[in-house]
Design a protein around this nucleic acid. Structure first.
Ligand SMILES: [Mn+2]
Ligand SMILES: [Mn+2]
Ligand SMILES: [Zn+2]
Ligand SMILES: [Zn+2]
Lengths: 137, 137
DNA sequence: AAAGTTCATGCAACCGGATTGCAAACTTAG
DNA sequence: CTAAGTTTGCAATCCGGTTGCATGAACTTT
């Protein structure tokens, strides 16, 4: 619903322009992460740079998080409600090698690692590759 | 030692050309992963494409493994003796946010993940970011 | 040894994703 | 309304990775 979209933007201190509403709409309907190119395809006529900057704004304001799954193009997905993109909020991502879709495994937290002495931890990127349930059929 | 280099190449079925000897030399002396650009800088006069293809050959023959640490350029490091680049051989990598060096944490295996039902696992990429012991001083 | 085959190298060009510069359009405050 | 700030669109650029092609070295066959 339109109001929800606007509220979400407002709550993250993002001015709800037309473009941003549309992009957030798409991201909300999406259940896998999406990259800039594929986002562009969701619109008949939209400037890639504007989409790029929209995503950047969303990311800066922690509405979405970036996922580098090694496919070459960075993907984005909505953050969870409570997420602050801190190390403890991090979850595992899954890249399907058949359909190339990337899933947020929101309820699988990144396992803790015992780093060697005098290495300190800031964040973790964990991407699991395999075949997703859709492609398993 | 020169002989060791050649033997290593031979053992992986890689013809020991001059270039390959030199590159393997550099990789052996290195204790962090290196990307194509930095490898190029290690030589006064070397063609980037040749280095690129040398790395590719090394990777194909499992002499080295690629590390995508999210810095934009793929890094490479020597494989362990017994490594066959199978899922069970995978280890964690560490990227220092200060010096940008990437370390192979060879004795930290990638933790096992309980994937959702009907997702199958092929491989895992786990990169930990933080500050390395060198930069901690 | 000459000719033929295979593989490695060097150079130029291309590709695709990410990013920047800049001016026009729009929004908001006074 | 006007001025200042923000967002948008278009063109251009950057940068890592990759390919095509011609030359050169090494190895085989006759
Ligand atoms: Mn996610
Ligand atoms: Mn490694
Ligand atoms: Zn799939
Ligand atoms: Zn460091």
């Amino acid at each position: 619903m339109k109001k929800d979209i606007d509220n979400k933007l407002q709550s993250k201190n993002i001015k709800p322009t037309a473009m941003r509403q549309l992009v957030l709409q798409v991201l909300t309907e999406q259940n896998t992460a999406i990259n800039l190119h594929d986002l562009e395809l969701k619109f008949d006529r939209a400037d890639k740079v504007t989409l790029y900057r929209t995503l950047r704004t969303f990311e800066e304001n922690q509405l979405i998080h970036r996922i580098d799954d090694g496919t070459g193009a960075v993907k984005y997905a909505l953050c969870q409600e409570k997420c602050n993109c801190h190390p403890e909020d991090l979850h595992v991502h899954f890249l399907c090698t058949k359909c190339n879709q990337t899933y947020c495994l929101n309820d699988i937290p990144v396992p803790t690692i015992n780093l060697p002495n005098s290495f300190s931890l800031e964040s973790v990127n964990m991407v699991v590759k395999g075949v997703c349930s859709n492609c398993k059929l």
